[in-house]
Design a protein around this nucleic acid. Sequence first.
DNA 1: TCAATATCGATAAGTTATTATCGAATCCTT
DNA 2: AAGGATTCGATAATAACTTATCGATATTGA
Lengths: 218, 218
Amino acid sequence: MNNDAMQPIPLPTIRRFPEYLRFVEDKRLAGEEWISTTEIGAAIGRKSVVVRKDLSYSGVAGHPRRGFRLEELAPALRRSLGWDNATDAFLVGVGSLGQALLGYGGFANYGMRIVAAFDCNDDITGGSMAQSQIFPIQKLPQLAKRMNVKLGIIAVPQDVAQSVANILVDAGIRGIWNFAPVQLDVPSNVVVRREDLSHGLAVLSYQLREECETIRPE
Amino acid sequence: MNNDAMQPIPLPTIRRFPEYLRFVEDKRLAGEEWISTTEIGAAIGRKSVVVRKDLSYSGVAGHPRRGFRLEELAPALRRSLGWDNATDAFLVGVGSLGQALLGYGGFANYGMRIVAAFDCNDDITGGSMAQSQIFPIQKLPQLAKRMNVKLGIIAVPQDVAQSVANILVDAGIRGIWNFAPVQLDVPSNVVVRREDLSHGLAVLSYQLREECETIRPE
DNA sequence: TCAATATCGATAAGTTATTATCGAATCCTT
DNA sequence: AAGGATTCGATAATAACTTATCGATATTGA
Ligand SMILES: NC(=O)c1ccc[n+]([C@@H]2O[C@H](COP(=O)([O-])OP(=O)(O)OC[C@H]3O[C@@H](n4cnc5c(N)ncnc54)[C@H](O)[C@@H]3O)[C@@H](O)[C@H]2O)c1
Ligand SMILES: NC(=O)c1ccc[n+]([C@@H]2O[C@H](COP(=O)([O-])OP(=O)(O)OC[C@H]3O[C@@H](n4cnc5c(N)ncnc54)[C@H](O)[C@@H]3O)[C@@H](O)[C@H]2O)c1
């Protein structure tokens, strides 16, 4: 409805956008032209009114009795997410999690590309994995500036996460995706997103026990 | 305040509990006896009133001018989360992500223990990783029953995630931690928690762009 | 002993997000 | 061509969560 991202998009909406996008892309590949919020909602398990409200933030207008035009919706969702131009990213910490992230092909769909990896272990550095070279961590600052990279992924043990964050910030990184379960202390103009598995597991454990209790109320 | 988990705990509170728990355990190991919500809030970056409200759901009472007794708080948080008795879990899919999860030591703190892994790839099955044996997926049903396992972790490619979910459900699994980016269709008495990296990356991308735009409003 | 202070716990206010409802627009069927 | 059906988009109502405020309480230190 509005021309561009004038009003801020609620974060719950932003979180749902990737799900819409995935479904929309599937439909587009299947050759469909229109999609309705009813159908999207059914596919991803949400009420259509939620989807409709969310999509209104994307800026595309729907069509009564038809729904939304896929050709329009997919790019609009990408644009809203900032995924229209793939963002280059550095990965720090090529351990078991780092290797999984490096090898993960899904990030291409998420507007991100890991262009280099860094580690402090000499046995790993120098080689490459999944088309990414692995550099010693000391090389990070100069490469960040040369390649103009603004996004960093932290996959190092938690006790060194803060020091890695400091290196990233000093190197001009503006956004950090942190997989270590610690609160990072960074300047206010740097965005940090912590990916903490314990959050999800907490909800699951709680619901699991709640479910069992309601089944057997004692 | 109330005796036990009579009232449901809000999910945002549940998500914050692991952070409190981590900090509380650190303090306890450091030999402290009391902790205040002021201090917890400062450590994990939240207002003390949030912490105070959250902790009220744990059932422990604080002490004016002192705070909460660590010996009481830590077990109460675990109990609220359902982490007081470690839950046995099966992992399905020993690929790059599955291996990272298998090797991750942190789950011990999260009330979970991966007791066996499963894969369909004969090159992997038969061996073991990080103290967990890897079985062919066909063995899952009988082992689930014999070991009375109720929690399953899905780390297989997305196109087979639903079929794996079906196997888990048929084997009596009551909770599924799903790392594949697909909506699983399961009976209503089975709890599914989807761990979708795209959600976090979406928020990060959005905030990163927003931040850059506010810096340069043109 | 008594005042100052830090904290809890409760209540209230404010904000945000979800859900419900309904008219208008369009397409499809007959 | 007309009526029925489906969907959008807006508004309103509800619910959930966060934040502010304040009295009560216990401790500390004068
Ligand atoms: N493995 C998992 O499934 C998992 C799950 C959730 C969170 N995490 C978190 O992710 C982080 C990494 O976990 P992991 O299992 O991959 O650990 P890991 O020990 O396998 O890998 C850590 C890597 O970081 C490197 N490293 C250490 N210090 C460094 C430094 N100062 N600079 C650069 N590189 C450095 C090490 O050489 C190693 O390669 C941890 O904080 C962990 O808590 C892991
Ligand atoms: N690697 C990552 O960093 C990452 C990040 C986010 C999400 N994911 C998701 O996690 C899942 C696994 O990712 P991955 O990178 O580990 O993939 P992978 O290909 O490395 O591993 C998949 C494993 O599943 C096994 N498998 C396949 N079909 C099976 C079946 N029917 N029964 C049992 N096992 C089966 C394969 O043999 C393989 O070992 C995917 O859905 C992916 O989208 C991965």
